[in-house]
Simulated scan of single mutants.
Amino acid sequence: MTINKVMVVGGGGQMGNGIGQVAAVAGLDVTLVDISQEDLDRGLRRIDKSLERMVRKGELTDADAKAARERIGTSTDLEATGAETDHAIESIIEDVELKQDVFRRLDAVCRPEVILASNTSQFAISKIASATNRPDRVIGTHWFNPPPVMRLIEIVRGVETSDETLETIQQLAKRFGKETIVCEKDTQGFLTSRLIMILVVEAMRIVEEGVATPEDVNRACQLAFNHAMGPLATADMGGLDTFVKASEAMTHHFGDRFRPTQGLRALVNAGHYGYKTGRGFSEYGEAR
């Protein structure tokens, strides 16, 4: 099928607005959907700042940035938007029951051929797909933060995801200018989350044991392993509140090696979630 219109559910959030921006830059018409216009306006402001940075860096012309921005609309009506879309991407908080509810609602209004994708970083795609009558057209597209910068989309097949669905999403990712890997087994945390989370949790333990500061842990991974950013900075960017939930889910499936540390819980209990609150394992000034 031809995909020209894309909707992003959770489009006001940190990941959702970035996904919408990528699709718009690639020439698709995008509708960001969220529960309030306030959330959507915040997402649009982030997109505006991101596009401005890309123009300053010479990654986009001013004309291309303006054209991309004009292709982005917003809505608080999921059903009305879903009835008109060619492809739906869910990017809400990591709560599997909420995700299932979104997919149930999308399934009821989207055309039968429309593929529904989840940006989950950990939940079984088959469990999300079970809320629909089209499990063969449900797939995981795990983006990385920030979506306009990161090159990879991890594609995750559910038990019933069809070959045609996989091929369509791989081709769409190429239109987005992204590279892909495929997680063939629908397992908790997929490939990338299992790898990064075990590194992040160990980095947290190192800090709590007083072995090194967060800054030196991050710097070690950047300089020794050529990581673009350190593991604690990665956790701060993604949100420590989100990381706690993901860590607890991974612990349930794979054991104590993924268990969230007490220091992490203390930061989250104090309302320090990382970039979005201005403080996590490091200080960032104003909330972002």
Results as ranks from 00 to 15, higher is better:
E94R: 02
C183H: 08
E202T: 07
V217W: 03
Q262A: 13
R111N: 06
Q14L: 15
G82P: 01
K5Q: 14
K66S: 14
F176A: 03
G27S: 11
A108Y: 01
E248K: 09
K185W: 04
A124V: 01
C221R: 09
T261Y: 03
L106S: 00
Q14Y: 13
A129S: 01
R259Y: 12
I92S: 05
R137L: 00
L44S: 14
T120A: 01
T161E: 00
G82W: 00
A266I: 05
T234A: 14
L223M: 14
P146L: 02
R56M: 14
T141R: 02
F190V: 06
G280H: 06
F123C: 06
L98V: 10
N4H: 13
E179K: 13
G158T: 00
L106W: 06
R134F: 00
E283A: 15
D77M: 03
I196C: 10
F281C: 09
R219F: 11
R45G: 15
L172I: 04
T261E: 07
G210N: 10
H87T: 02
D101C: 08
R157K: 15
V211Q: 05
A23N: 11
R45N: 15
Y284R: 09
I155W: 05
E286W: 08
A83C: 01
E97H: 07
R137D: 00
S247P: 04
G263H: 05
V22N: 13
N218M: 06
M197F: 12
Q122I: 07
A117W: 03
G263P: 05
G189W: 03
R42W: 08
S36M: 07
F103K: 04
E84H: 07
L191G: 10
V159T: 01
V138E: 00
E164F: 01
F243Y: 12
D186T: 02
L40Q: 13
G158R: 00
K66G: 09
Q122H: 06
K276F: 04
G189A: 10
L116V: 01
L232R: 02
G274C: 08
Q122C: 07
Q37L: 13
M250Q: 08
Q222D: 03
I169P: 11
F123W: 06
G278K: 05
R219C: 12
E79I: 03
